[in-house]
């Protein structure tokens, strides 16, 4: 029935259907979320007996003064600012090119998608070769002699290159889907209205790709903030030379697994969470404000 009103019985029945997923989600996502949030306020705590003797903001105060954490925040922000725009622009560009070729198009699409399905460890191994100071491909191409992975001035750039390269495939596929959704009539109309190829790109392609661009940008911001495994694999379990690739997630990992400072790790997790919320919030706020330009409707 379309016009059925919810009753107590129907609500209970719905809950029953939802129960399997709800139980799993609450146990493995919601509950750890809450407990780690609480843990960030434990100042005297025995992890193994789970005894809390005192609570307070000391963990946050510690982070506020800890130079390593400052470095982690700085590195993370540099990383996000380096990766996100590059990934979005490059994947859009490649998607546009791929959209133009008809010949062997699925072959090229597969090639670009491959990094996404390859394991991080394998990728890091290959990039270790590429970045090698004496025999590496990159130095051979650039004609320099940069020690990409061991020089603190370059190691964050090296990380950004690997992460951009790895993220391309998936975002290209998303952009290609977006491009396929643009009705050819818009291009024909624009052409007859006198739009040049560039004007067609700025007046048809870009505005019509706006929704997918928002999705890719926000998704890329969130996943860049959480970067960890690429660092771990690329620098063999280190945070780069002289902690040059220490990100917030890596800091959290070190505090938790290496140093055993569980409440500090939890507190840094909360700070990371707040960063992500603020930045994605800002992104959404921006897109909402400009929604008329982007989607052609008021929201």
């Amino acid at each position: 029935m379309i016009n059925a009103k919810p009753t107590l019985k129907s609500t209970l029945k719905a809950l029953l259907y939802l129960a399997p997923l709800l139980i799993v989600t609450i146990t493995f996502t919601i509950w750890p979320l809450i407990s780690s949030f609480l843990m960030s306020f434990y100042t005297k705590y025995n992890y193994f007996t789970n005894q809390v003797k005192a609570m307070g903001g000391a963990n946050f105060a510690y982070l506020w003064q800890n130079p390593d954490f400052h470095l982690a925040v700085r590195n993370t922000l540099v990383f996000v600012i380096g990766v996100v725009p590059l990934t979005v622009i490059l994947s859009l560009g490649i998607a546009l090119l791929l959209n133009q070729i008809n010949w062997l198009s699925s072959f090229f699409r597969t090639i670009y998608f491959l990094p996404f399905v390859t394991s991080t460890v394998a990728i890091s191994l290959v990039w270790n070769w590429i970045f090698h100071q004496d025999n590496g491909l990159l130095n051979a191409l650039l004609g320099g002699s940069v020690d990409w992975l061991n020089d603190p001035h370059y190691s964050l750039t090296a990380l950004i290159i690997v992460c951009v390269w790895r993220g391309l495939g998936f975002n290209i596929v998303l952009f290609l889907a977006g491009l396929n959704n643009i009705d050819n009539h818009y291009y024909q109309a624009a052409k007859l209205d006198g739009a040049s190829a560039w004007q067609q790109f700025t007046n048809v392609t870009l505005p019509m790709l706006a929704p997918i661009t928002v999705l890719i940008t926000v998704n890329e911001i969130i996943s860049s903030f959480k970067v960890f495994d690429q660092i771990y694999a690329l620098f063999h379990g280190q945070a780069g030379p002289a902690n040059a690739d220490l990100t917030m997630m890596y800091y959290l990992y070190q505090k938790f697994y290496v140093e055993g400072q569980y409440p500090v790790a939890a507190a840094s997790g909360v700070v990371l969470f707040i960063f992500i919320v603020i930045i994605t919030g800002l992104a959404f706020w921006y897109f909402q404000r400009h929604s008329i330009k982007i989607w052609g409707r008021r929201s």
Partner: peptide, 20 residues
């Protein structure tokens, strides 16, 4: 097509959705 000075109305109108 750009230089033929032709006005065309498409069956589905093809109005640009992001423009008023």
């Amino acid at each position: 097509a750009r230089n033929r000075n032709i006005g065309m109305v498409f069956q589905d109108y093809a109005l640009y959705p992001q423009l008023n």
